[in-house]
Design a protein around this nucleic acid. Sequence first.
DNA 1: TGGTATCATGCAAGCGCTTGCAACGGCTTT
DNA 2: AAAGCCGTTGCAAGCGCTTGCATGATACCA
Lengths: 333, 333
Amino acid sequence: MGEDSKIPKLEDVAEIAGVSSATVSRFFNNPGMVAAATAERIRAAVAQSHYVPNLMAGGLASSRSRLVAVMVPDIAQSIFNATVEAMVDELSVGGDIVMLGLTGIDNARMPHLISAALARRADAIILTGLLTDQATRDLIRRRETTVIETWGLPEDPIDIAVGFSHRAVGQDIARFVHGRGYRRPHLLSASGTRAMERRQGFLDDWASAGGATPTEQVFTSQTRFGHGRAAFRSLRELDERPDVVVCSSDWLAQGLLVEAMAAGVRVPDELAVVGFGNLTMAAEMRPTITTVDIDGARIGREAVNVLRRRAAGEKIEQRHIDVGFRLMVRESA
Amino acid sequence: MGEDSKIPKLEDVAEIAGVSSATVSRFFNNPGMVAAATAERIRAAVAQSHYVPNLMAGGLASSRSRLVAVMVPDIAQSIFNATVEAMVDELSVGGDIVMLGLTGIDNARMPHLISAALARRADAIILTGLLTDQATRDLIRRRETTVIETWGLPEDPIDIAVGFSHRAVGQDIARFVHGRGYRRPHLLSASGTRAMERRQGFLDDWASAGGATPTEQVFTSQTRFGHGRAAFRSLRELDERPDVVVCSSDWLAQGLLVEAMAAGVRVPDELAVVGFGNLTMAAEMRPTITTVDIDGARIGREAVNVLRRRAAGEKIEQRHIDVGFRLMVRESA
DNA sequence: TGGTATCATGCAAGCGCTTGCAACGGCTTT
DNA sequence: AAAGCCGTTGCAAGCGCTTGCATGATACCA
């Protein structure tokens, strides 16, 4: 406890405890290896000196950073948040931390952020958006970094993918909607790759069920509540009004419902609505929203689980982990 | 480009470029210091070898991690998201990364996460929630780590605070509500420290304006859409019905509005509603929601700005940076 | 042309930890 | 009683970079 006590290092602790620094290191990284009595002395020394390990030094020596990079388009009101949250929770329990990278809605900053992650020697990189940049993919391959792609199941994942089939979602919705007797669907989609996959799934299945080509509308920005409201109004001007609107987000659905309510249009009798995402609000809305539930937290947990198994030396053959999805049939359709 | 080419290091680049590793290091950290011709050769060598610096080694040597820890209660549907997003954006431009720590709604995991941040030798720690644990505060003080507390202006900040006065928000709302002629407010608050400060501000000001003590309701969990809906119904059972409901979040306000709409209650004529947070949806809701706007992104930018000035060696006297707030008067009140 | 300031670079000593290897004492085994 | 063995610990060589200091090469000035 000197006057201008500097930041204590392993050696200081070792000295206090009367052992070598190697032993203190083992105390932290390999507790089973040090004798009980010694451990006790070290514990005391740590407390006394307020020692906090320097993981930069440790990481350099062991070449394990205990840092996982998580790339997400944004977190403003993102559907990925539950996944990120689950990952952060799960990882920090094990002493790992997450570096959060916001790639932008169009994933433009992805390459830059991947470099940053590699520079920190991240133990793994988890992606929620798509990594299309070939140079970056090559870079990652060369480094043999563990990469987990989530929220989708690309044909040829960089490494391992945890997600579900967006195509199947679209198909299931089509089947459901058709089964319910709706015949004039209108599609409200975001323009992203995945929303487009769901749309295509819907269209394919709808066509093969003999339905007429649905009317539709595509939003190039992130879909929001306001878009749903606006969409409702434009729908009222269509020659042949749809009997069900299939939205690529619950936000759209909610906007639609509020506007329908204000206009006195009965849901689902006059107009049915299907959302996507199963936000908390979807079950609380009036009427409750029929939507597709994705267990985002589970995606996060599975991803971390794969990481742990990898770290434990396990060879993982399975390149696709399908967490599926659930159609939540409620009042709105 | 050997067969089993290992990860290239500074020295490999140096060799290719025909300089010493020190020069390559300077090329990265102090570009102005190396001759143009040399720089060009190094640039080529870097490209050829696909070199990515090892920031763990760099950080160890320079004792600057270029890592900023950001602590947030959660990101599920958090009001802090804009702040976090702004910080991540701003920081990653400068080559810094953010370690995201989720402390839990009650900030229970805060101490553990602070330790993790200190272990990584984070250059700074940014808090959005409150750090009440004394031991942890001491630890931080001892390490002389830069700490920025955001979204509030505590009397005695650990280091520097960037935020606004919750008390003042409550007072302003009280004045506004009173000015509009409402006389029977009902308060819907979350139980957190800050929501309670706003509540107290409201109550104080309301009392001094001669108003009767408002009825109220406190939620111990995070306030959500569903709570607003439920609250509306319980309000209808009060002997003396309120003429305005002051909510501690826009979610509550939205729930209230939807339920009011369904019940055919006219807003604001029969019942006015005031929210807090100015979520995107608040301006899009029907009716649009009168609420309080906090420029969360600005809080993030200001915080990073302080960090940068600190890093540049500037002594910062100002311990409180007030970003203020704006009452957004719209249709609902 | 010598003296000196300037610029660019190299040298080498760390930064604080991890870990393979060796050593040591006490036990068990034969 | 000699030979192994096991559980603990210490030794010391790095991990890949940064940076103070020294050096050499140029440029500038009188």
